[in-house]
């Protein structure tokens, strides 16, 4: 239930991204009844002779719970280095590193869109306060961990995060 649209550089405008997202959202929410969470994230263009694409994870936590509620996306290569996504590895990855339809190859610099239906493993829509986490770590580079408290199941909302070294701007949009 995850869809993502990667754009390289500025090929797609934000408007067209949102339009596609809207369509996807309609298609997905129509049947599931769960809220659509759209995460637009930027992997910064880093000029470095030793540049390798970052390992990146997006997941949802519930306050006070040691284990993550759900992994939303994880982009990686060799599993040997999955542990370097330190928080994701501890909260989710080590229990289930291969999440169907969620894990994929590392992505290039640019804007990426991840869309997710806010439901639990049994397909029940999630409601209440959660913590949306994003983590990116790059070989010979840095690690950036971003956290945003979000309120699910209570109408449309938007959140913006200013990012860090390995993750640029993040826009989180909750559907109706």
């Amino acid at each position: 239930m995850v869809t993502d649209i990667a754009t390289h550089g500025r090929e797609m405008t934000r408007k067209s991204i949102l339009q596609s997202l809207f369509l996807i959202g309609v298609l997905l929410t129509g049947s599931a009844g769960a809220q659509t969470v759209s995460i637009e994230l930027v992997l910064p263009n880093i000029k470095s002779g030793q540049y390798q694409r970052p390992y990146t994870a997006v997941w949802l936590e519930k306050d006070g719970e040691r284990r993550a509620v759900s992994t939303i996306a994880v982009w990686h290569e060799d599993k040997k280095w999955l542990k370097d996504l330190r928080r994701w590895w501890r909260k989710a990855g080590r229990y289930n590193p291969e999440v169907d339809g969620v894990s994929g190859a590392t992505r290039p610099a640019g804007t990426h869109l991840v869309s997710w239906q806010a439901q639990d493993a049994n397909g029940k829509p999630l409601a209440g306060d959660y913590l949306l986490c994003l983590e990116a770590v790059r070989e010979h580079g840095n690690r950036t961990l971003l956290k945003q408290k979000i309120h699910l199941g209570d109408g449309a909302r938007k959140y913006s995060l200013s990012g860090g070294k390995e993750l640029g701007l993040v826009n989180i949009t909750l559907g109706k």
């Binding site: 599993k79 040997k80 542990k83 501890r90």
Partner: peptide, 11 residues
């Protein structure tokens, strides 16, 4: 050298 390891293979 490492306290936590992620690997499917023996490491």
């Amino acid at each position: 050298g490492e306290f936590n390891v992620s690997d499917e293979k023996a490491s």
